[in-house]
Design a protein around this nucleic acid. Sequence first.
DNA 1: TTAATTGCAAATGGTTTGCATTGTT
DNA 2: AACAATGCAAACCATTTGCAATTAA
Lengths: 122, 122
Amino acid sequence: MRMTGQRRAILDALQDGHRPLSPSEVLEAASEAIAGINLSTIYRNLKSLVERGDVIVVPTPGDSSRYELAGLAHHHHFLCEQCGRLFDMHGCPGSFAGIAPKGFKVRSHELTLMGTCSSCTP
Amino acid sequence: MRMTGQRRAILDALQDGHRPLSPSEVLEAASEAIAGINLSTIYRNLKSLVERGDVIVVPTPGDSSRYELAGLAHHHHFLCEQCGRLFDMHGCPGSFAGIAPKGFKVRSHELTLMGTCSSCTP
DNA sequence: TTAATTGCAAATGGTTTGCATTGTT
DNA sequence: AACAATGCAAACCATTTGCAATTAA
């Protein structure tokens, strides 16, 4: 994988966003650096960046997946139902392995809080 | 809303499944009672059953939403990465409101454990 | 008979892919 | 030259919708 300007711009967008971004949010942010950048390219580059381990997928309940830079400490997210943005939160309340049914093997977990972010609260 | 045979079959499918079902799982189950039942009808009826409050949507991270009968105690789910089925778990480890950023209003939360269910564990 | 429900096919929206072109080494 | 990366259009898949035909109250 070559580190092209487009991939650089995508990583920059994720870095500057300070929160997980959807593909269309990445497109919007990267478009400011590279006019005419294509959504297919965003998807393809996000995929290869994930395979390479530079970026992780954030599966989001009831909405499309977001992407964020890899290497952050384990944490969870807040989904604003008003503006649709996903935010990072710090820490994790536990492993939750105890509530899994007997015989089920827990590999990971997703915790998402939903509500209204501070910008959208009147 | 009229209680047709199709709607009856859909509710029966959700009841008998003992776990949240995807639209295509509902189709498969309802087809045994009503041959030729259409997927559009499944979607339309699920929607009206949700509006009526008989059924709730279970938004599932990284996968399409599932549906389950309303009225169950607050609980969370386990997604088997092998067979794709979603299972109910009992109880909830907490409110999690404490980890939300300042100024954010929490309305609800989704907790999903991922891994391998007992049927898929070797 | 009146209004809700259904099947079918077409539309939609997000994501992926084929292919010819462009860019990098 | 050899191969990776891109743009574009078409394919895809889950979900929704328009409409004419059917069914329930």
